[in-house]
Write a protein that binds this DNA or RNA. Structure first.
Lengths: 214, 214
DNA sequence: TGCATATTTGCAGAGAGTGCAATAATATAA
DNA sequence: TTATATTATTGCACTCTCTGCAAATATGCA
């Protein structure tokens, strides 16, 4: 139910098909020839549209490659996180939520793999994707803040402090996401990315411990 | 002692002056009119050089704005971190090193403030700067790995695991850097950025600890 | 069918960025 | 100082990205 997806007239379907054709053409071409050796004209040719139409769908040659940012699911996992109580880590508990968010992609497997490979290969694209995630980051920060508030209602007294603390948690969560990306070897698709993600989250408390458990 | 800085003939000094003039012109213009309303031609005009020369100094309109990435200092602080021993946190101890690295800028205060303001205002620029920090990130990861090895020589058995662990530590350190940036209000220059940075690092244990102090 | 609305396309043009060759400035050695 | 080598600056032509606008085309709906 993506706003207009239920309508699904001929127009809608054609638009989606065109969008997908452009993405596919772009990803394949860059995979074949390298980012800097591919022009928008070529992409448009392969996708059977005019160059002008390309820019009706995507703002730039980069944005067509990075894909949509994840969206926070409004489901049971989220509710569970919010009410987990003060004995569960505010940080590690974020793992399953992030995993659920990133799993909900409209891409098929082929596109996903191409994207992943390109994001690893071109830091500029990876970084652009991270920028695109800012909104997701903000939603996450709000969720964390609410969870903290539920765990300890007295935090409401210092709203600014709460927000800052929540932001730090979110940033660290994104560090875990980056880590999962970096470590996940495309070939080792043996274990899905979701598991890899949870793994990185669970490693987080441990990076402190060499000093603590001494 | 930056490779050729000791030479300091007329040529070197002119080059530096030109570089600085371009940076200043670019930062001021973007501050005055907004990023998208400034052209390379305008920047070149104000800096009294030809547009072609602009691209001899900087690869793009963006790179002139973000400044150079920090470099790891090879000093006492670094040596202290490496030999701090297993009872000091591998993560929090990174704070002073990062603070020292970011403090060593060739920018004067005016440029620094303009840059900071623009990086906050334009996410694309902030992201570009983060990309530029990748090399610094790699150096940091190596330092962390060596420190871990000194703390526990048995880790040498699993080289891949060590590297991954060190990477996670570095990524989390960068989360702290981002946090410091986000929280630091330019106006509140009352406490320098260095202190703000240390503050964020010291908040990390409170977030990573398995459970709150319940 | 006929009308309203959305999509595609071509075209002209601004701006970013590059390669190349000419020119100017600086360094160096006699 | 002068001749010569090296490096920096510049102009020019060119490719590519991206935008505004208006004409043409396709779809939705009564």
């Amino acid at each position: 139910m993506t706003l207009e997806a239920t309508h699904s007239g001929l127009r809608e379907r054609k638009r989606l098909a065109t969008r997908r054709a452009i993405e596919l053409a772009a990803l394949e071409l860059v995979d074949e020839k390298g980012f800097e050796n591919v022009t928008v004209d070529e992409i448009s040719n392969r996708a059977d549209i005019s160059p002008r139409t390309f820019f009706n769908y995507f703002a730039s040659k980069e944005t067509v490659l990075v894909g949509d940012a994840p969206v926070l699911p409004n489901d049971a996992a989220l509710a569970g996180y919010l009410s987990a109580g003060p004995h569960e880590s505010v940080l590690v508990g974020l793992g399953p939520i992030v995993a659920a968010s990133t799993a909900a992609t409209s891409d098929d497997l082929h596109l996903q793999k191409l994207r992943f490979s390109l994001l690893k290969q071109y830091p500029q694209l990876f970084t652009l994707r991270m920028t695109a995630m800012r909104q997701f980051e903000d939603s996450l920060t709000e969720v964390v803040a609410e969870r903290m508030l539920r765990d300890d209602p007295s935090l409401a007294a210092d709203e600014g402090g709460l927000k800052n603390r929540a932001r730090l948690v979110t940033f660290v969560a994104f560090a875990a996401i980056r880590h999962a990306w970096t470590v996940w070897d495309g070939s080792g698709a043996s274990s899905g990315f979701g598991n890899r993600l949870l793994d990185s989250f669970e490693q987080l408390p441990g990076i402190l411990s060499p000093a603590v458990s001494a």
